[in-house]
Nucleic acid binder design. Structure first.
Length: 174
DNA sequence: GACAGATGAAGGA
DNA sequence: TCCTTCATCTGTC
């Protein structure tokens, strides 16, 4: 695992933590620590803070912040920073790329995502790829529902999934 | 190589 | 409807 720089992203919903490598955004952690990737990284001390940040990174962080605010408000992100998926499998990346095509209020089932990437039977694997998504919210794995329109699961916790979908008008009582 | 998993579909109560 | 069971595919250890 490469070293990353972590920067806080202050939102009305709490302070997210963004991790950047030299290639782009590597990971995004929920405020409540619901993202298991975050706790692991922090424990292992694989991240570090640096006083002087490269200019591109500051630009990415600003883009990330704006995108996060937009998504949390139920709007589409105008732009996303470069996403660093190095080390991830081709299958996972294809699933995440498909998720990036989904706009606010636009949901798909795990089966539909599987079919969209040309592997209609790999529905369970799509669930696994969603769970392995290090950049939730920006890579909208919360917009993937089970076939029966149930929530399914969410790495950041089902509460977040309900909240995000509620903001986008997908779920009532959210 | 074995096992687990954020599923989906089918069958039965 | 709801629940249970099984098939399927991929990632991880």
């Amino acid at each position: 695992m490469k070293n990353t720089i972590q920067l806080p992203v202050v939102t009305p919903k709490g302070v997210f933590l963004a991790h950047y490598s030299e290639q782009g955004l590597v990971e995004l952690n929920f405020p409540d620590g619901g993202n298991h990737h975050a706790s692991r990284l922090t424990r292992e001390g694989e991240t570090q803070r640096r006083p002087a940040l490269p200019a591109p990174m500051l630009q990415w962080h600003q883009t990330t912040t704006e995108a996060l605010h937009a998504v949390l408000a139920g709007r589409a992100a105008k732009a996303l920073p470069p996403l660093d998926w190095t080390g991830k499998t081709e299958f996972q990346q294809s699933v995440w790329r498909e998720l990036l095509k989904l706009g606010p209020g636009n949901t798909r089932s795990y089966g539909e995502i599987a079919a969209a990437i040309g592997r209609p039977k790999a529905v369970r694997a799509v669930g696994g790829a969603c769970g392995a998504n290090p950049i939730p919210v920006l890579v909208p794995c919360h917009r993937v529902l089970a076939a029966n329109k149930k929530l399914g699961g969410f790495s950041g916790g089902l509460g977040w999934k309900r909240r995000l979908l509620g903001r986008e008008g997908v779920m009532r009582n959210a």
